[in-house]
Amino acid sequence: MSVIIESPPLQPLEPVLRTWVECVRQYVSVWGGEDLPYWYNEQSNVSVLCGAAWRAGWTALEEYQVGRIGDEAEYGAGRNDLYIANDEHGFCIEAKVAYLEITDLAAAGTVLAARCALATADARSADIEGHKVGAVFAIPYRQGAQASAEEQLAFIDWLQDKHFGAVAWVAPATVPNLRSHDDRHYPLAALVLLNA
């Protein structure tokens, strides 16, 4: 199973997460494995999640203006990364990306924890109705060489052991060239969700 939801408030997002997996696979397939939507930046990753929401029958809006709760000098007006909703549920999502060295899960844990804390803090500060969610696109890489099947499985097990509110992952079926311009190989993508 590539989607695990442990937090009941996040359970309604299951069809969106499953569709996100499909959307990543479709993107990689269209480009024959020569381009990956998740090795770019936060906005690229959010756009795939937004598309998955629409494809799953939800509505979605990216990068819209929203007030911020807190010290006006520090927060004031800002933008929210993504809002998705259906007839029953609405989710205000603040996203971050964490690029994680797959061969050093201890260091990866430090990076991921920091990005999770930032995403949930940003979600909490949004002055908007709906369930607030921190989202982190956890993107493992290996420098210079493909990650082994064992390394990929160890990464997925490691993510599951963290017991996030929800986690989804996808390893593309088409993998002729998963190396970026900086000689990093990106074997899979994961999406971590946390209640804010």
Rank of each mutant, 00 (worst) to 15 (best):
P9E: 09
W54C: 02
K96E: 01
A119I: 05
T103L: 06
S44I: 00
G90Q: 12
T174S: 11
G67R: 15
A190K: 03
W58T: 00
Q152H: 00
P12C: 04
F137D: 02
L159H: 07
I84M: 09
A121E: 12
W158V: 00
C92R: 08
A154G: 03
A106H: 13
C116T: 09
E42K: 05
Q146F: 01
H185L: 01
L191H: 02
E94P: 03
A77G: 06
C92Q: 14
F91T: 07
F155K: 05
S29T: 14
C92F: 03
W158M: 03
G70T: 04
L178M: 12
Q146L: 10
S44H: 12
G90F: 04
P140H: 04
W58H: 01
Y141S: 00
R68Y: 13
T120L: 00
A107G: 13
R184F: 07
D161C: 01
Q11L: 14
Q65C: 11
W39K: 11
V66A: 15
L17H: 14
H185F: 14
E74A: 08
L153Y: 00
A123T: 07
H131D: 02
G57Y: 04
V48G: 06
G76S: 11
L100Y: 04
E150R: 12
L61S: 14
E101Q: 07
P172A: 06
V167T: 13
Q152T: 12
G70Q: 02
V66H: 07
E94Q: 11
H131R: 13
A98Y: 02
Y40V: 06
L36R: 15
V30D: 11
E14W: 06
W31F: 15
A108L: 03
L118K: 15
N195T: 15
C116K: 13
P15K: 12
E72H: 06
G51E: 08
W169A: 05
